[in-house]
Every structure is written in structure tokens, then in C-alpha cells.
Nucleic acid binder design. Structure first.
Length: 932
DNA sequence: GCGAATGA
DNA sequence: TCATTCGC
């Protein structure tokens, strides 16, 4: 219901908006939003959004958008300190002032800026003048404006959180004051934003009581003797000041006298002009609001970023293959490779010579899926033109009921192209509607599918098999890159020998190129059957999150903090002074200069190392060392886990990590925001830490992890008899290795021998070099090399496998895992010995670790799709490389655990079982520690 | 060795 | 950016 209806007005009101205040509020309500050239648009967007909504809801006739006029006004003359505490207006806001003024005028609204006159005074003057003939509704929240309230003057604040309509009666009710007293009231209590101190010691509550007896400043002064002694004391020094303050808090009613009502009459909005303005500033999310007010021509326009028309440019780099040929010519495009799934055929190569046939697509803005061409059975490309917002419903507060989706307008613009169409659409309508539309497509090409699934707008209704994820494809083709964002992929178009005028068109071209290369590298099955379906599993896990025990976290943090305080004191005492213990530099200075300890090594950057290893060597030389080691441990615990985790929990106490599928060169997943894959497990505090991760009420956590999965993979790949036998007989692998290595029966392996064998086994898995091994085993480099030599002479078959991997890498330039995942290792050809060794270790490490990653990914997919686990209501919540964590209703926990272990054990990568059994340990508990 | 996070 | 430390 409109405001004028709520007030029951019969005469058309005059609306006066405190524009300056709204601009400020808008600017700070939303951080960073900008046009593609970097021009800030956050305040412009919100102000325009407010005005559009206002016009639509209120259907006003008279309206004024009032801004502060330039120059000093009477207040500065009266009181030089007036607003002296205001810092300079931020530059990004200044830049937006002119566009905002332009927006107001474009919408057909009156803009009022009177020199030497603040917006408030202008509003007060106009209100005082027009309230005699019609209602006045002041749109604003500034408390100074309350003095304008009257039988016929109202205040309305559309509000950040909640809108508020204030009438005279409500004002009286709330304050017990009359509007005419408001300036007096403010003069006493002060106003920090205007730098008016008021009378010290008098707050709103005291002031209200005083005003009940003495309704004006004059009355207070005249009855000074009658005031309570305490009040007398407070007022004594300010009896004159408060009158000065009142001249500041009193709004002038003598301004803007040349304005007539006609100035405020609203002109009809010009839909096309407004739409052009919005496009200029890339505020396309508002187009639909304009369309609701006035007709907007369905305009086919060139890109907003003033590029020359597409046809003016040479279409593609000559001589390079352009993928567009025929792609967009209806009805069929036989030369192009149909992307992903559904009977795709081998593509034709040899696209050279067609470079000039780039078909340039016309761009069209649409806000409704009904304006998009039918895509059933066709391929479509969807390219979000901004960052997608994850979980939009719990982001920032919004003005005027904005959803966060609207608040970040560029985020919900998606460029759409449908195979065979001569258009590319800039879609700014409902994402849910677009998702529904995409459901009918044969294939949906997008740069980042998980980002779409995560915004919860119905994208999960598009079957996994219909997606083509450009980032994923690029990752599978070359997992070494750090960045598979659309920004980067589109910037690399030249490198991929692909060209297109528009984003969605480019997505098509890239998809075709990637598909061709995936087929060439035999990666299509891996993508379609594992990685692509896994996206949905990861999105689900992220959304579900893991429950934490907030109370346990808090208690833990308190204890750790107390210990840290104690250690800090002890360290300062032992060190003979205070310093920043967290600073490696200051710590080094203390240890090696002030205390004269001997440095035990340097860091990569040449600084003296203060690492744990060094400190441990120094232990016993000075009492601070132990204290510092303990401090480090606790500080790590506090800063990395205890402090941040509870803050990341949602209202249900659950933490939602992000699983990155495109992060590692070997094929493993990574976790971030927060990283839940490095929660402490060992050490003094590991168990307690993990116990803080719990199942929700009525549920248990089920943890299942592969035992020695990398070494089992290694046994399978190398067929080394020592390893095969050990695993087939379910023996302790490190003891078995030690037994062979040191020529002693398994039963007589010493704990030292076992530990050495374990270290080298580990080293193999992680691609450790002799240097690292020496460090780890605390032996010399020569000894380490000899040790490795001995190891390989005892495990001949393993050695042969390593050599084979190396030869393979040298021959092809890449290595592959059990199911054909690839990693390029070009440095294996390097003349640099160091580089070559590094590449060799990477090659081997990738085969082992990558194959293990394949196995657990397959297990994850099976787990997520398993009907039995579904009926048991078991939900995957975490993956930690070789471990899966489920949350299951207590009564089903045991069954789910057994089922999960079965699934994990039964993984057959590439269709056949490994030559050694996969062993899985599992547990059940309320917390992660107990379950593990 | 890798990936993530923290703090100077 | 570097140094450090957690997990696997």
C-alpha cells in the first residue's frame, strides 16, 4: 500500500526527499560496485533503485529531490566548528554525484540545489510553505527534520532494515515533545555528526524530564534557580552556548522562496531514455523496473563499452583456427564439434581459412526468459557477467527490500546464446526462470557450474550430464594453471586459437576447442563420468556444511588464551624485555643477537630461520626456547582455528567450506574458507580440536578412511612383490618394508628401523627428494642418498616402475593416473638437473597421489548416489583426501558406516579392481575425534 | 611436496 | 611477499 493511502490522504501530497542523506546512506550501504571500466556505481545504483521503486509504488504527482547547496551557510558563520568533524567526501562518491543528478532528471523528477542552503533547510522551508495547501511527506531519516512534523507534515523513511512512517501523533508519543521543541532539545543533548557538543552530562532521558517542566531553553534559563543542584552545575557554564546551538539545530523556513508547486510536478518517465542511461552505467538489473513504469523499446544495441561495431573489425586472427564457422548458422552446423554428451561425434579439424567468417551476434537486453529463443534439444552457453553470489539470502542488508541478487546487479546478468540464433542476450531477469529454461537444453555450457549450483536458484534441475564446465575442461587439459576463472579463460582466447565477439559466443567457441582436445587426450570419460557429476556432490556438501560445538570452541579458546597470556609474560621475563613473539624477525633478533645463540640454518629468502626444527635443536640452550615453541603451537591453534571457526558458523552452528575442484595439479580437492582439510588431528590438542566438530542433534558422525591408499596404489602400479605381498596379507607395510630393507624378519624389526622405513615410504608418496629425506631422518645428504639407493636395490620392481614413469613422461611430456587423468611435466626435458629431478618427482607423485584422488572421488560419487545411504538419510559432509565424513541419524549410523566402507572398498578405478585390496577403517561418534 | 591460512 | 605450520 502506498504511503499516501496509509495516511488516508485525499489531496495529492508534495514529496520532499532528503537526497544528500540518501546518497550517503546508499554509498555506505553497499561496498564496491563498479562499471566494467572501474567507475564506481554503488550509490548511483541504490539511489536509482529507490527512486524507481518509489515512482512505481507511490505514483506521486509532486516530488522534489533536495541536495545540499554549495557554499557556507548561516550555521558556519554562527559556529565555525559546525560539521568540522566531517571528513572529506570519498572520491568514489564524489564521482557519482553528477550521474545521480542525471538519473534524477532522466526520471522526470525535480532536482533542487539551492546555493548556501542545506537540504534540510530547504525541506523545512518548503514544508512550512506548502503544508497549508496540501500534505507534505518528507522522505528522509535525519532527526533534525522531525521539527517539521505537523498535522499535515509526515516523515517517511524507506529504511535500510525497516521502513518507518512518522506522524505528529507518533512523534509526541515517542518523545513527549512538540516538534517546535525539537531544536531546543537537540541543542541540549548535542549532535556528534554535526559537531555540536550540547550540554555535557545531559542525555535524551534527562532532557525529556527537564522539558516536561520547562518547555524551552528560555524557560530553563529563567528558572535556573529552580533546577536541581546537580543540573544547575551541568548547565551553569552552558547557559549561553545552548542558545548558539539552537540556532544551529533550528532549520530555516525562509529558503527556496522562488519555487512554486509547478517546479515539483513530475514529468512522465521516458522509458528508452532511462534504459539508455542504465545501460551506460551498466545497471541493467534496473531495466525491468523501468519497464514496469514505461514502455521500453526492445532495443538491439551494441555492447555498452563503446566498442566499434563488430563488423568493423577483422573477425579473427588470420591464420588461426576460428571455431565459429557455421556454428551459429541455423539449422545445423556439421563442421563444429557438438559439445559434451548425447551422441557427440569426433570433430573435424582443419578450420583454417575460415577466419573471416566470424558471425557477429547482435546483443539484446532481456529480462524475461520468454524473450529467449526456444533451446529445447539445443546447446546453449550461459556466461555470468559478474561474480556469482553464493547463498544470496544471507548477505548484506538491503535498502527498500532489495534482494541481494538485485543489490549486485552485474551479478545477475547472464549472457545467453542459443545454438543457431543470431543474437546474444544479456539476461537480467530471474535466475530461477533461467534455470528452468536451461533444463530443456541439450547441453548447457558455463564457465563455472558449481557457482551456478551454489546460488540455489533451481540450477540443480539441469542434469549433470547436460553441463559442460569450461573451467573444469581447462583444468583437466592442464591442471597446473592456478586460475580457471572466466576472466582468465576469456583472456586466453588467442592462446586457444579461438575468437568471438561476445562472451557467450566465446564460451561456445572455447567449449568446442576444449572438447576437441579432451577427446584427443582421452579425458572425456573422466570429465563426464567423474568430475562433472562430482560438481553437484561438492555443491551439496558445501551447502550442508558441518556442525560445530560452539560452546566447546569458546571454552577451548578461553583456556588457550589464558595459556598464551601466561606464556607471553614468561617469555618477556626470560627474554628480559617485550617484543612481538609472532614476528620471526624480532624473534631471530632476540635469539641470535641478544641472547647469542648459534643460528642453525637459513630460510629460502636468506633470513635466519626460527622454524620449529631450528628451535628444537636449540632447546636446552635457553629457557625461552621451550616457551616459544609452546607459544607457537597455541597461537597457531588460536589464530587459525579457535578464533575464526565460530565466526564462520551459520545460525544452525554449521560451517560451510568451499571445495575447490580445480586447485591441485594432482587431481586432489582442496578446501578453503575455511580449510577443513587441515584441522589438527595429532599432538596434544588434535583430539580436543576434532571433538569440537560434531553431528547435529539426533545424528552421529561416521568417518571412513582408506588405509595406506597411496602405497596400495603404488603396489598395484609397480607390481613390486614386497609391497603386493604385504598388502595382500594385510601386514604392517612399514614393518614389511623395514624387514626387506634391513634384512631382518618382520617380527624382529626395531622401532627405529620401522620409523626409517615409514619415513622413506612417506617420502616416496610425497615425492620427497634426498635433501628432504636427510632433513627428516636427521642424517646427512650422502647417507640419505645411500639409503634411497639401498631401498631401490631391495625393491627392484618399484625401481623399474619409477623408471618407466620417467620414460613415459619424457616420451609424451605428461603422465597419467589410473583412470587417465593427466598432468603435463614439460620440465622433465629440462637441461637443468634440479628442474629435471623436480619434474621426475612430480611425475611419480602425480601418478600415485592422483590415482588415489581418482579412487576417493569415485567413492564420493557412489556414496552420494547410493540408494541405501539415501534411505538411511546419510549425508556427505566432508572429504579429507583419504577420508569421508557422513552425518547420519543415530539409529542408522552403524548401517551407514558399513555401507560407506563397502562402497569405498569396492571402488574399481577404470572398471577393474586393484591388485591389492583397498582397506577402509571406519568409526562412529558424536564428534569427529570419536568417529575417526 | 602441495594447498591453505596467518601475521608481520 | 615471506616465514611458518597444519593436514594428507
Amino acid at each position: 500500500m502506498s504511503v499516501k493511502e496509509r495516511l488516508g490522504l485525499t489531496t495529492e501530497p508534495l514529496y520532499l526527499m532528503d537526497g544528500s542523506a540518501f546518497i550517503f546512506r546508499a554509498f555506505y550501504a553497499m561496498q564496491s560496485m563498479q562499471r566494467s571500466d572501474g567507475f564506481p556505481t554503488n550509490a548511483l545504483f541504490i539511489v536509482t533503485r529507490i527512486l524507481l521503486k518509489f515512482l512505481k509504488d507511490e505514483q506521486p504527482t509532486y516530488f522534489g529531490f533536495i541536495l545540499d547547496g554549495k557554499g557556507k551557510n548561516f550555521r558556519h558563520e554562527t559556529y565555525p566548528e559546525y560539521k568540522a568533524n566531517r571528513s572529506a567526501t570519498p572520491e568514489p562518491l564524489v564521482q557519482q554525484l553528477d550521474p545521480i543528478k542525471q538519473a534524477v532528471r532522466t526520471l522526470g523528477l525535480h532536482l533542487e540545489i539551492s546555493d548556501n542552503c542545506e537540504a534540510d533547510d530547504c525541506i523545512a522551508s518548503l514544508a512550512a510553505r506548502y503544508k497549508k495547501e496540501r500534505p507534505v511527506i518528507i522522505i528522509g531519516a535525519d532527526k533534525d527534520l522531525k521539527q517539521c512534523l505537523d498535522e499535515n507534515v509526515f516523515m517517511w523513511d524507506p529504511g535500510v532494515k525497516q521502513e518507518k512512517l512518522t506522524t505528529l501523533a507518533e512523534f509526541r508519543e515517542e518523545t513527549g515533545l512538540e516538534p517546535s521543541q525539537w531544536a531546543d532539545f537537540q541543542a541540549i543533548i548535542g549532535d556528534s555528526s554535526d559537531n555540536i557538543p550540547g550540554v555535557p552530562g545531559i542525555g535524551p532521558k534527562t532532557a525529556e524530564k527537564i522539558f516536561a517542566d520547562y518547555p524551552t531553553l528560555e524557560a530553563i534559563r529563567d528558572n535556573f534557580d529552580a533546577l536541581a543542584p546537580t543540573l544547575q552545575k551541568k548547565f551553569a557554564d552552558h547557559l549561553e552556548n545552548m542558545f548558539t546551538f539552537r540556532t544551529l539545530t533550528t532549520l530555516s523556513t525562509a529558503q527556496c522562496d522562488s519555487l512554486t508547486l509547478d517546479h515539483f510536478r513530475i514529468d512522465p518517465i521516458d522509458g528508452d531514455k532511462t534504459a539508455d542511461f542504465l545501460r551506460e552505467y551498466e545497471l541493467r538489473a534496473l531495466l525491468k523496473d523501468v519497464a514496469a513504469l514505461a514502455p521500453v523499446s526492445a532495443k538491439v544495441n551494441t555492447p555498452a563499452t563503446a566498442k566499434p561495431a563488430a563488423s568493423d573489425k577483422p573477425a579473427a586472427k588470420s591464420g588461426t583456427g576460428s571455431m565459429q564457422l557455421g556454428l551459429f548458422d541455423a539449422p545445423a552446423a556439421p563442421a563444429a564439434a557438438p559439445v559434451a554428451g548425447h551422441g557427440s561425434h569426433a570433430p573435424e579439424h582443419g578450420t583454417n581459412g575460415n577466419a573471416n567468417r566470424t558471425s557477429s551476434l547482435k546483443l539484446e537486453d532481456v529480462t524475461d526468459v520468454s524473450a529467449l529463443p526456444d533451446c529445447s534439444g539445443k546447446r546453449i552457453a550461459l556466461v555470468p557477467m559478474g561474480e556469482m553470489l553464493k547463498r544470496p539470502e544471507c548477505t548484506m542488508p538491503s535498502l527498500l527490500d532489495m534482494t541481494a541478487e538485485e543489490a549486485k546487479p552485474e551479478a545477475c546478468i547472464i549472457n545467453v546464446h542459443v545454438e543457431g540464433s543470431d543474437r546474444e542476450y544479456r539476461y537480467s531477469g530471474s535466475l530461477t526462470a533461467l534455470a528452468g529454461y536451461a533444463t530443456t537444453a541439450d547441453t548447457v555450457i558455463a564457465p563455472d557450474v558449481k557457482a551456478l549450483l551454489s546460488i540455489k536458484s533451481g540450477w540443480r534441475s539441469v542434469e549433470s550430464s547436460r553441463w559442460f564446465d569450461l573451467g573444469l575442461a581447462a583444468y583437466l587439459l592442464d591442471p597446473e594453471d592456478r586460475d580457471y576463472s572466466w576472466r582468465r579463460l576469456s583472456a586466453r582466447a588467442d592462446e586457444f586459437e579461438v575468437a568471438a565477439e561476445n562472451p557467450a559466443q566465446l564460451a561456445f567457441a572455447l567449449a568446442d576447442d576444449f572438447m576437441r582436445r579432451l577427446q584427443g587426450a582421452d579425458l572425456v570419460t573422466l570429465m563426464r563420468e567423474l568430475e562433472l557429476p562430482l560438481i553437484r556432490v561438492l555443491a551439496d556438501m558445501e551447502e550442508i556444511g558441518i556442525h560445530i560445538d560452539g560452546t566447546a570452541f569458546t571454552a577451548f579458546l578461553t583456556e588457550v588464551q589464558r595459556e598464551l597470556d601466561r606464556l607471553t609474560k614468561a617469555i618477556y621475563e626470560a627474554a628480559g624485555g617485550s617484543f612481538n613473539i609472532r614476528s620471526a624477525q624480532q624473534l631471530g633478533d632476540l635469539l641470535f643477537n641478544k641472547l647469542g645463540l648459534k643460528p642453525k640454518g637459513k630460510t629460502k629468502g636468506g633470513q635466519i630461520s626460527t622454524s620449529q626444527a631450528v628451535l628444537e635443536k636449540l632447546a636446552g640452550e635457553h629457557e625461552v626456547i621451550d616457551l616459544i615453541l609452546e607459544y607457537r603451537t597455541l597461537e597457531k591453534l588460536r589464530s587459525t582455528y579457535l578464533e575464526p571457526m565460530p565466526r564462520l558458523a551459520d545460525a544452525q552452528g554449521r560451517i560451510h567450506t568451499t571445495f575447490n575442484q580445480l586447485a591441485t595439479a594432482t587431481g586432489r580437492l582442496s578446501s578453503s574458507n575455511p580449510n577443513l582439510q587441515n584441522i589438527p588431528v595429532r599432538g596434544q590438542f588434535g583430539p580436543r580440536m576434532r571433538a569440537c566438530f560434531t553431528a547435529r542433534k539426533g545424528c552421529k558422525l561416521v568417518s571412513a578412511d582408506y588405509s595406506q591408499i597411496e602405497l596400495r596404489v603404488l603396489a598395484h602400479c609397480s607390481q613390486d612383490p614386497t609391497l603386493l605381498e604385504a598388502f595382500r596379507n594385510d601386514q604392517d607395510i612399514h614393518s614389511s618394508t623395514a624387514s626387506v630393507l634391513f634384512d631382518v624378519p618382520t617380527t624382529e624389526v626395531s622401532s627405529d628401523q620401522r620409523r626409517n622405513a615409514k619415513t622413506i615410504n612417506f617420502g616416496l608418496v610425497y615425492g620427497m627428494g634426498p635433501q628432504k629425506l636427510a632433513q627428516e631422518l636427521k642424517i646427512s645428504l650422502t647417507e640419505a642418498k645411500e639409503f634411497i639407493e639401498r631401498y631401490f636395490s631391495k625393491l627392484q620392481q618399484l625401481k623399474a616402475f619409477y623408471e618407466q614413469v620417467e620414460a613415459n613422461a619424457k616420451e609424451h611430456g605428461y603422465v597419467t593416473t589410473l583412470i587417465g587423468r593427466r598432468r603435463n611435466v614439460p620440465e622433465i626435458q629440462s637441461g637443468n638437473n634440479q628442474m629435471q629431478s623436480q619434474a621426475r618427482r612430480q611425475a611419480i607423485n602425480t601418478v600415485i597421489q592422483g590415482s588415489a584422488a581418482d579412487i576417493i572421488k569415485i567413492a564420493m560419487l557412489r556414496t552420494a548416489q547410493d540408494a541405501e545411504l539415501k534411505t538411511l538419510k546419510a549425508r556427505l559432509v566432508l572429504q579429507v583426501h583419504d577420508e569421508l565424513l557422513l552425518e547420519v541419524p543415530t539409529e542408522n549410523a552403524e548401517a551407514a558406516a558399513r555401507r560407506l566402507a563397502d562402497i569405498m572398498t569396492g571402488v574399481h578405478p577404470g572398471g577393474t579392481a586393484l591388485d591389492v585390496p583397498l582397506k577402509v577403517d571406519y568409526g562412529i561418534g558424536d564428534g569427529w575425534h570419536e568417529a575417526h
